[in-house]
Design a protein around this nucleic acid. Structure first.
Lengths: 151, 151
DNA sequence: GTTGAAATTGGGGCACG
DNA sequence: CGTGCCCCAATTTCAAC
């Protein structure tokens, strides 16, 4: 799966505004609208583009507390155990296994501190979890690329 | 800025697929296409919806190394100093001031380990940075809501 | 104030060169 | 890949609740 310069500029244009018209993008990158659509279709088929979504203000939707939770798991826990266990929590936005002391770090959104604490307790009670360590977000300084890679 | 149930369902529909037509969304939530568009316009004007973007596969775009960096800053550093300093790095996807020992944690994307190390060294060389501690992502288990809050 | 229906504008999508 | 065409969706207008 190799993207050339044209593909990257198309993805960049879509990252700025996913509802931009193919003709608009075509003007930016120097292609006709159908040519852009064909490339976008190909990028989707290849899996480079996985979908289109909306960027929201967390607070406006009632998510006013955010934090990172480092998870220390039992020694025989597989990454897939963690993924399956956490996928039942809508408050968990992302989870990754990591290097270092902790086994995984997860990003948690909650309505308020009380909600955050409840989620934390439920997660800490999962059979594969030994202990957790959480840091709360004081202020989100930068939120670029909607949490993904630079595009 | 208050969202009612209809607004939330519209945002949810857009989160699943931002290119869905207003008529489609209208069928889901029980409104006509113009009614949906008016609400989306209002949500954008109010700032609840901040934009529309594309979901991409990091690896497909050449970002194969990801990590979190905890930053320990000089005592007289303001959050805005950190934000300004980090905004010059395209590799920094997000940054937040946090509770705990570290002053901020940032999410970094790099092409490979060598690139990650370079970025880390440059950031560590910033005048407001005292030291850093980074954890590398081994495998991304969950990437929901494109890095934002649950919608 | 918010809705739905009708009318207009403009973009998506396909065939073809 | 671009052009031309058709159709559907987006957008505006307007009347009604």
């Amino acid at each position: 799966m190799r993207l050339n310069d044209l593909d990257e500029r198309i993805v960049h244009a879509l990252a700025e505004d996913a509802r931009r018209s193919y003709a608009d993008i075509g003007n930016l990158v120097g292609l006709s609208a159908p040519a852009v659509k064909r490339r976008v279709d190909r990028l989707r088929a290849e899996g480079a583009i996985t979908g289109f979504t909306v960027r929201v203000d967390p607070a406006a939707l009632g998510w006013r507390t955010e934090g990172f939770v480092e998870m220390y798991c039992r020694s025989n826990t597989s990454p897939d155990d963690i993924r399956r266990g956490l996928s039942r929590y809508p408050e968990v936005a992302s989870a990754s296994t990591v290097t270092g002391d902790a086994d995984a770090v997860i990003q948690v959104f909650a309505a308020d501190m009380r909600h955050f604490e409840q989620v934390l307790e439920r997660i800490a009670g999962e059979p594969f979890v030994e202990r957790t360590r959480s840091v709360l977000v004081l202020s989100p300084l930068l939120r670029r690329y909607s949490g993904g890679p630079p595009v």
